[in-house]
Design a binder for these strands. Sequence first.
DNA 1: GACGATTGACCACATCTGTAGTACAACTGT
DNA 2: ACAGTTGTACTACAGATGTGGTCAATCGTC
Lengths: 131, 131
Amino acid sequence: MAESLQISPAEWDVMAIVWESGSTTAADVIARLSDSHDWSHRTIRTLLARLVEKGALKYTVDGKAYIYRPAVTREQCVRQEGRSFMNKVFGGDVGALLVHFVEDAQLSPEEVEKLRQLLATKKDPRRRKSQ
Amino acid sequence: MAESLQISPAEWDVMAIVWESGSTTAADVIARLSDSHDWSHRTIRTLLARLVEKGALKYTVDGKAYIYRPAVTREQCVRQEGRSFMNKVFGGDVGALLVHFVEDAQLSPEEVEKLRQLLATKKDPRRRKSQ
DNA sequence: GACGATTGACCACATCTGTAGTACAACTGT
DNA sequence: ACAGTTGTACTACAGATGTGGTCAATCGTC
């Protein structure tokens, strides 16, 4: 199935809402984006249409309006975006990427601990498991 | 100074070389990119010109050719790109970002250990800082 | 049943990107 | 001094992106 979807930053904001909702209408997306963005509803409708065109969203008709649903999973897109970012900025070096974000970020002690535990499971191959 | 430079993926490949070299000529960049990319030298010259125009590179004239040098540091750009990526894909949640990359990546035991140590310095405020 | 609000379809338009081509000047070898 | 080589400047052009307008169908309302 359609690999390598190109989702632009503005489109991500729309996808984020649809992923979160599972299924929504344009009106809902518009309402939810109005807090964070100063976009015309036209703009958002255009983005929705483009996402459908790209195959990132699908819709069913419900009376007058469309019900939008994701056609790709968030994980899929995150993985893809993540890889292309990693390649672009860190030349594919995950280690460097992680070091950068750990250094740049303000992590709470809880997050640090969580990550250390997560790393612990990565260190020991026996606990790696399931591919 | 000039915040928010927009450096495209293709331009990053060029910048990567200039950052690494400190200062180079177009010919050198072209030569070094020929391994990894199948770009016409025209394309690379265009990218160099655009980067100068954007203020990411500067040059001095040396006889016939230009000597290009970075006008912005790699760290600056990495930080900026990192943040916009984090905001776009992870809604600004560094923790989620780190978890994602740790899970997605194949880290060598050495890398895991290095990261755990790095995290250790983050956890304890007393050891923070030290450079 | 006409009317305004809502919604999708289609259109527009400037800018950015990827990817080059053309023109022209300078340096170089003979 | 002239031609080839090399380098920069200017131009091109299609597809992606951000941003939004016009139009016509539809739906609820008076």
